[in-house]
Simulated assay, not measured.
Amino acid sequence: MTTATHTILPISGLRIGHAHDETVRTGVTVIVPDAPSLCAVDVRGGGPGTRETDTLALGGLVDRVHAIVLSGGSVYGLAAADAVCAELGAKGVGFVAGPPPIPVSPIVPSAILFDNANGGDKSWGRTPPYRSLGQTALESLSQDTAEGRIGAGYGATAGLHPGGFGIATEVVDGTTICALIAANPVGSPYLPGTDVPQAWIYEQDEEFGGTQPPIDYRWGAPTDTKLARFAAPGQNTVIGAVVTDAALSPSDLKRLAIMAQDGLALSVQPSHTPLDGDTLFALSVGDRSVDGPADLSWLGAAAARAVARALTRGVLAAR
């Protein structure tokens, strides 16, 4: 296993925790803001698996979250959020629906990816490991993390290659945006016939190894996708979050999540397929001002690049 240390300290007010089960070949990632934070979500592809994403719809009662959970395990992985919700509730962290003894209601949106066909031992019967993994991930919260085979990306595959968890940061006029991505797409993250990442043009500081396509390279259809091997709905999916220190409104965060999804098209071919369930959250944990649609547009473009780089970094670290 290859991992690379990467700090998320460029954005304060946020911690992340991971847990994995080596035998099952799966894992969970928990993202927790220091204070309840505005959040939006964008869901694409034909096979999503989510919890509490409807809560984030514009115009609803609740517009802040207390944690976000990313998990392997397909539908079983949604149980990871149960553990996070229970633990936060026990600590009094949540939406206050009334005075005691009415319990608070932690808002914990969640998304899952399918890693149930990766060869791990899935004979868990009535005791899937995800609630336990969610608890362990919550207990390991930190401002530092690793990349590659870790957390929700532990059992992931990207096309016919190892998948993984990656982080990348972009800065636009002093405003920071950080992408945290668990990469498990049906498509390939490499240019066909090469070991050059699809997102090579967005590389920073030789984070991908500095590889570039040959001068005479001509693109062709990739053959290293899951379309031949696992051509069934839901056996894939990229999930993650983009976090910014900009003080964005719920509608601005929704647009940011939409634009961030373009990062998948920049780093994976094909992307957003009927066989994926791609889900990205957008979270605001800062107070930097954004001046109108033009600034938001540039921030959204940076979010797409950050997603493309984070996905690629996770895949390369897991290779």
Rank of each mutant, 00 (worst) to 15 (best):
M1T: 13
K122C: 08
A304I: 03
A168E: 08
S110R: 03
P214Y: 10
F165A: 04
Q143G: 14
G45L: 11
D144P: 01
S142T: 07
A182F: 02
A57W: 05
L38T: 09
V65F: 06
A294K: 09
V307W: 10
N116W: 12
A221F: 09
L160P: 03
S249N: 03
I215M: 13
F165C: 05
V96W: 04
S132F: 00
V307R: 11
G292N: 04
M259Q: 14
R218Y: 01
G134C: 05
R229M: 08
P106R: 02
I201W: 04
L58R: 11
D34P: 07
T157N: 11
L316T: 02
D252V: 01
K254W: 01
Q269F: 08
I68F: 12
P189N: 09
R313P: 05
A231S: 13
D42W: 05
P250E: 10
Y154H: 15
L70H: 07
L88K: 04
G159F: 12
D278Q: 07
G125T: 07
S267D: 10
T211E: 12
D173N: 15
Y217M: 03
A318E: 08
S289I: 08
W124S: 03
L275V: 03
A304C: 09
A86T: 08
I239K: 01
A246Q: 11
G220F: 02
C178M: 15
Y190H: 14
A152M: 07
T50D: 13
E207H: 05
P270D: 03
T211D: 10
I102N: 00
D287C: 08
V69K: 05
L275F: 14
I11R: 05
Q198W: 11
R126P: 07
I112D: 00
E22I: 13
T53A: 10
L264R: 02
P129Q: 09
F165I: 07
D121F: 08
I258P: 00
Y202H: 15
G240A: 13
